[in-house]
């Protein structure tokens, strides 16, 4: 693992105001260590998507900065990959699965033969061997999201950022995808930043959770999740630590929502 003294991802005093209106993000500072599973939760409408767009370099913050391995980020970084909630919209319907997953490699000028083998490898990792020739709309929602995850992993990113990635699939598929994500994170020693509105999911998956307030979004607290490296859908969720953390975060969110602004 890399140097632990320096955080992989650091947000310093991040603020965002769209022209002329009230601020959406207000002075958010947090650090994500290398190899950490880090979740960001908050009430709906808290500007989570704005935060995510700022921290991936898709949008410039009004104030403050984001650093990746100590280097300020002003545009999307090659070390970082993104998975969106709307898999039907983030995949290209006119391209086969193989071409979809290979796109980021093409952007980097990886030769064709290597592209093919890396695509096959990463598709196998997400449990979708041999679907290269199919089109996204021929697959189920859960499978499409696996394709999106494969596309994010194919560049072997250091940081994987996920925006509500499991919000549009059914409950069983959701659990499968959660476990897949956790396993991939362990296998690749990847840093994952997950934005979600689902507290249970955040507690189940994360090592640390940042709780945001709304109007504007401020950092309320960062919660450690001491549930160990191995997680299990039934076991982990039965642990008293799980229930405690879940209750604590839900209470925090309810408090910030009822507080007068």
């Amino acid at each position: 693992m890399s140097d632990t003294s320096q955080p992989r991802l650091a947000l310093t005093d991040l603020s965002k105001t769209y022209d002329g209106s009230t601020p959406v993000l207000d002075g958010i500072s947090l650090t994500v260590g290398a190899g950490e599973f880090f979740s960001i939760v908050g009430p709906s409408g808290a500007g989570k998507t704005t935060l995510l767009r700022c921290l991936t370099g898709l949008m410039r913050p009004t104030d403050g900065q984001v650093t990746l391995d100590g280097i300020p980020l002003s545009e999307p970084s090659p070390k970082m990959s993104l998975v969106f909630q709307e898999y039907t919209r983030s995949l290209m319907p006119w391209a086969s699965i193989g071409k979809n997953v290979a796109l980021p490699l093409r952007a980097r000028g990886v030769p064709r033969a290597e592209r093919t083998s890396r695509v096959a490898k990463v598709l196998a990792e997400v449990g979708l061997s041999g679907v290269e020739a199919k089109y996204p709309w021929q697959l189920s929602g859960g499978m499409q999201q696996r394709v999106a995850i494969a596309r994010a992993l194919v560049t072997e990113p250091e940081v994987l950022v996920m925006d509500e990635p499991f919000a549009s699939v059914d409950a069983q598929t959701r659990m499968d995808l959660e476990d897949l994500t956790r396993r991939l994170q362990q296998d690749h020693r990847m840093t994952i930043v997950l934005v979600t509105h689902d507290i249970d999911e955040a507690v189940y998956l994360s090592d640390q959770i940042a709780v945001l307030s709304k109007n504007p979004a401020r950092l309320v607290e960062v919660v450690d999740v001491p549930l160990g490296a191995e997680r299990d859908q039934i076991h982990t969720r039965e642990m008293s630590t799980f229930a405690d953390l879940r209750g604590r975060i839900l209470r925090t969110i309810r408090d910030v929502q009822t507080q007068p602004v």
């Binding site: 767009r53 991936t56 898709l58 545009e75 999307p76 090659p78 970082m80 990959s81 993104l82 969106f84 709307e86 919209r89 983030s90 995949l91 290209m92 796109l103 980021p104 952007a107 980097r108 560049t155």
Partner: peptide, 14 residues
């Protein structure tokens, strides 16, 4: 689709 355009930017497609 704006999401796809974002995805392309995140992949640093020229």
């Amino acid at each position: 689709d704006p999401t796809l355009v974002d995805a392309a930017r995140a992949m640093r497609l020229g």
